[in-house]
Design a binder for these strands. Structure first.
Lengths: 231, 231
DNA sequence: ACAATTTTCAAATGATTTTTTTAAAAACGC
DNA sequence: GCGTTTTTAAAAAAATCATTTGAAAATTGT
C-alpha cells in the first residue's frame, strides 16, 4: 500500500523546523523535544522519520545546502571582476539578512558548526563548498592581478568572507534590540552589501603589492606558503 | 583568623581554567566537572568558592575583560589616525592569535556569547566595551573625514571588527589541520594584522563619499539613521 | 465500509550527565 | 595544638533528553 501523503508533510515540516533550531542553537543545544514541539509533532516523530538526532542534523544540513546552491547566481565570466564580486557579496548578504524563507540558514548553521564543530558534516561541506571558494579566489585574482602572492589572495578572501559572516552573529542581538522583525529590509541589506563591496575592492587593490617573497625570514615550513586554505 | 593563601590559589586556578573551558565550549556546554578536573580541584570547589556555575561564568568574564583592558595600549592621539588604526588592529589580532597566556580569551568568549547568548554578562559588556568602540569610531572618523555619514563610519567599524573576529572562528579548525600548536607565530599574526590594516584603510577611504542623505527613500524610522550601534 | 498500512500519540524508559550538598578529613596559620 | 579554612569522596538531588513502546487514530486502496 502507498505511503500516506500527510506523512511526508510532517517529515518536511520537521526538517524545516530542524533547520531553524539547529541554526539558532547548534547541534548540541538543539533538542528533539523542541524541534518536535515547534513542528507541532510528537516527540517520537524524529525517531520515526529520521532514526535519530544525528541523522536529522545531517538531513537538515543537506537540505540547507541544496537550497543554498539551488538559488545560486553564477555571475557571467564576461563581466568585469569587480561586478562579479559585487554580485557575489550582495547575494551572500541578502541570503543572510533578508527573510526569504530559510535561505539564510546555511551561513548560520555553518557558523555554529565552526564555533562548535560536530564533525558530522565535514565531507558534505567540503564537497559542496570548495568550488564556491575557488570561484571567489578567482574573482579576487582577476582584480588583484597576477603579481600578488597566493597568500595575499587568500587573505583578501578571508577579509570578505569574515565581513559578511560577522553579520550573522550580530544580526540576532542587533535586530532584537531594534524591535520585532527578525530580518533587515532589502534596502538595508543592499546598503550593507554595497558597503562591503566598495570597501573590499579598494582593499584588494591596496594590498596587491604583497608579492610572494615578502617576509622571507619569517617563513616556517619552507613550502613558500604562509597560509593554507581551510574553512 | 586570616584566610589561608592556598585557598585563593585554588580559586584563581579555577577561574583561569574556567576561562579556558568557557572560551572553548560556551556556557552551557562547559561543565563544572571538567573545569574542576582541569584545575586539579574537587568538584565541590566551584560551589565552595563561587556559589554556582553562573557566578563562576560572570567572574570568568570579568577577569577576561580586565586582562583584556589592562593590556591595552592606547595609541597617542598625536599619531596619524592610520597609525592608530594599525596599532589597534595589531593589538586585537595578536591577542586573538598569539599565545600570550589567556589574553585571547576575551574575543573567543565574546564570540560564544554572541553565537549563544546567556544574557548573564550584558551589563558588564556594555559598561566595559562601549568606550573602546567609541575610540575605534573616532579613529575611523579621523581617517574618513567629516563629510561621511555616521552610518558609513559604523559600517567601517563593523567591517574591521568582523575581519578580526572571523579569525577566532577559523583559528581552531585551521590550526588543528596544520598541526599541534594552538596559536600562530607572531610573524604570521603580524602578516594578518598588516593585511587587515592596509585593506581597511583603503576601504575606509573608498567609502568616504557615502553622505548621510544617501538612500533617503528607503529610510525607515525617520531618525536619519539606518543603523544603530549595538554589539 | 473494511482491512491493511501508515502515522500519531502519551507515557514511560533508560541512560547519562551535571549541579549541588554533606559531613568528615586534611591542611594551614598562629 | 587549636581554631579555622580548605579539600575531599561520596552521594543526593535535579535536570535533561533521546529513544522506545504499544495502543489509538487516520488514511489509503479496494
Amino acid at each position: 500500500m502507498a505511503k500516506r501523503k500527510d506523512g511526508i508533510e510532517t517529515r518536511q515540516k520537521l526538517l524545516d523546523v530542524a533547520c531553524d533550531v539547529f541554526a539558532e542553537k547548534g547541534f548540541r543545544e538543539a533538542t528533539i523535544t523542541e524541534i518536535c514541539r515547534r513542528a507541532g509533532a510528537n516527540v517520537a516523530a524524529v525517531n520515526y522519520y529520521f532514526g535519530d538526532k544525528e541523522s536529522l542534523y545531517v538531513a537538515a544540513w543537506r537540505q540547507t545546502m541544496e537550497q543554498f546552491l539551488s538559488n545560486d547566481i553564477l555571475p557571467s565570466k564576461d563581466l568585469p571582476p569587480e561586478t562579479r564580486l559585487r554580485v557575489a557579496i550582495h547575494h551572500i548578504i541578502h541570503r543572510v539578512l533578508v527573510d526569504d524563507q530559510s535561505r539564510g540558514y546555511f551561513r548560520r548553521i555553518e557558523l555554529m558548526e565552526l564555533a562548535n564543530p560536530t564533525g558530522l558534516i565535514d565531507d558534505l561541506w567540503k564537497a559542496m563548498i570548495a568550488p564556491r571558494q575557488k570561484e571567489l579566489l578567482g574573482i579576487i585574482r582577476d582584480i588583484i592581478g597576477p603579481g600578488a602572492s597566493e597568500d595575499t589572495v587568500i587573505l583578501c578572501k578571508t577579509s570578505i568572507i569574515n565581513q559578511c559572516r560577522g553579520y550573522i552573529l550580530t544580526q540576532k542581538s542587533c535586530l532584537e534590540s531594534l524591535g520585532g522583525s527578525q530580518f533587515l529590509t532589502a534596502a538595508q541589506a543592499d546598503r550593507i552589501a554595497e558597503h562591503i563591496t566598495r570597501f573590499s575592492i579598494a582593499g584588494i587593490k591596496a594590498v596587491s603589492g604583497q608579492a610572494d617573497d615578502q617576509a622571507d625570514s619569517t617563513r616556517e615550513k619552507g613550502d613558500g606558503k604562509m597560509f593554507t586554505q581551510s574553512k
